[in-house]
Design a protein around this nucleic acid. Structure first.
Lengths: 228, 228
DNA sequence: TGCGTTCATTTTGCATACAATACGGGCCGG
DNA sequence: CCGGCCCGTATTGTATGCAAAATGAACGCA
């Protein structure tokens, strides 16, 4: 292969991460994850290895290894035939995932109450506030990001890393669906996220639990009403 | 490479599964999973690719792909350095996992109540009954297997595949620890499993929930009391 | 036209080759 | 006796080559 600058599709590499050894499978993993989140790779799309490898500037070997790892994580599947397919989450699975989140996340929120550094809460507040201003162009991207930040806030501080990991995993699935199918969740999320933050900041465990549960139920209703 | 009969380490391949295309990465995945469960690969043990590849009769390429997939699933990790390491679950993580299972599994058991085919319940009953007889040699192996069967029973029939998948995943972690650290759980498990089965068979959702919760709490107590 | 069949092309599965890096052990200087 | 350096070896990271399987298109035959 011509040893190109190994550029990666524009704007795909993750930030930070001083990779002393370039480690191409990690690069593939990050890049493909990002591409899926940006809908550059749609759910159900079947991946041709040579093409994607060329696009990322790597050979098929690290590409395949990265994809296998993503399959283990559930982002892609080897669908029936022989090629990798970006996992497609349908409404049924989305709702099931939300049900499980409805079991786990209120628990995490309650556990986290009173254990979250105020600085972190403030940071998430700022992120949400900044959202009101920006135009709709990058809006959704930033919105999803603040969504991540909020849920990560109480997951990480729940005191149970395993619980946090499960929540993250479930959110991969739900995000996959939301990216593909839901459009205007910004306004309701803004309101509900604010309520959750208030409860977390106030250290009121019961209120936090309620707020998170209400949020997740709202998502279910929204999906049922929105998706054709 | 000498194209050997591709024998695989004795007794390592999973049963059934007529693999029309040999599919070596699936073979690796199954084999390594089995080897970990049998403690042929201990937690914390670092894997040398060439050695394991030779042992399984494959080249390093499918071996690495299989390992990457296992890393995505959380069975192995690329520990700091550069080689794969069988994940080591410590007491803390084990207890955290049990806590999460204590949230999820009672829910699944209750949901499954009344939806489990009687034949399946009977099959698990038989499996447990057969356990009483066999000697301690294969005892533990068979014990773990019946444990899988019981928990799988209500997970699969809970009506929520995502929930079932989460439970399976958590059980990978807890099993990893139990294999390494716990010895004589047979007697208490036998009793508690029977109680769960009775509740499931009776269709009593509340009782099933209670029985599963009691079982998981018993495991926590047992671990705290047993592990030095 | 409709349908099976053959052949060219694409695409994957796997093995191997090779370069880069980490590791360990001995050697030398102190 | 100890610490640091150097070099041979073990091991991993990546690319490439090639064979088998799938795909699909052209073609002939009914």
């Amino acid at each position: 292969m011509e040893n190109e600058p190994r550029g990666v599709a524009p704007g795909v590499t993750a930030a930070g991460e001083a990779a002393s050894p370039p480690n191409l499978v990690a690069l593939v993993h990050r890049s493909v994850t990002a591409m899926i989140r940006r809908r550059q790779l749609r759910g159900g799309h079947s991946i041709v290895e040579a093409k994607l490898a060329a696009q990322l500037g790597v050979s098929r070997t690290p590409l395949r290894e990265g994809l296998q790892r993503l399959e283990g994580e559930g982002l892609v599947v080897k669908g029936g035939g022989r090629s990798f397919v970006v996992r497609h989450v349908d409404l049924g699975e989305y709702l099931q995932s939300l049900k499980v989140r409805e079991i786990l996340e209120p628990e995490a929120a309650e556990a986290a109450c009173g254990h979250i550094p105020v600085a972190e809460i403030a940071a998430v507040r700022r992120e949400i506030a900044g959202l009101q201003v920006s135009a709709t162009a990058l809006h959704t991207d930033a919105h999803w990001q603040s969504d991540d930040a909020l849920h990560e806030l109480f997951a990480r501080n729940s005191g149970n890393d395993v619980l946090a990991q499960m929540i993250r995993r479930l959110r991969v699935t739900t995000r996959l669906f939301e990216i593909a199918r839901l459009q205007d969740r910004v306004a309701p999320d803004l309101r509900e996220h604010a309520q959750i933050l208030d409860a977390l900041a106030g250290g009121d465990g019961k209120a936090a639990r309620k707020a998170v549960q209400a949020h997740l139920r709202s998502l279910q209703r929204f999906a049922l009403a929105t998706v054709r």
